[in-house]
Amino acid sequence: MSHDHDHTDPPADIELRVKALESVLAEKGLIDTGALDELIDIYENKIGPRNGARVVAKAWTDPDYKQRLLSDATAAIKELGFSGVQGEDMVVVENTPDVHNMIVCTLCSCYPWPTLGLPPAWFKSAPYRSRVVIDPRGVLKEFGISLSDEKEVRVWDSSAELRYLVLPERPAGTDGWHEDRLVDLVTRDSMIGVGFPKSSADLHQQAGA
């Protein structure tokens, strides 16, 4: 006898359930399959952490923009054109030599779509959501990061509408860099708070060879 229900895998009929639902809704004229394909393409290929990286790089090079970003993130991000669903109410939290910020949604998967795209699977998973609020330093170690004991760690739990974005510290050795070049240093993980931006050396290594 084989196992009829292996609960660690998606149920075998899930594909069929999705097709059935889509087909019933399409028959009733309640959804437009072509429009759905377009939506998928936008969220899979067009919106991603590159948007957030632009926000961060601008804040690193333009002190007035950074002020606006920290006082009214929603409006400041909108200036760059990255607003919309799941980015209606934004707060940007700034990393400093004394403070490291991390974001989570312990209740579900709230994430700033317009600036970071759709969240990675681990962000939505029970291990990250359960543990980051009680053991942030332990979680950071899993991402290969060890913070000094003196550094304060702040974990921001997204609520129903509010979405957070971390403004990481600008890497050393990038004085005088143009905004466009700085964008390449900003990683998705650095804007969630489970990573740091790349260093200028990382970038040379990538470009080198």
Partner: peptide, 20 residues
């Protein structure tokens, strides 16, 4: 769903890259 602070959910194991 209120998972914050719960023990026993195991390691995160973030993959270096993953599809959307």
């Amino acid at each position: 769903h209120d998972l914050g602070g719960m023990h026993g959910h195991g390691p995160i194991n973030p993959p270096p890259v993953e599809p959307v």
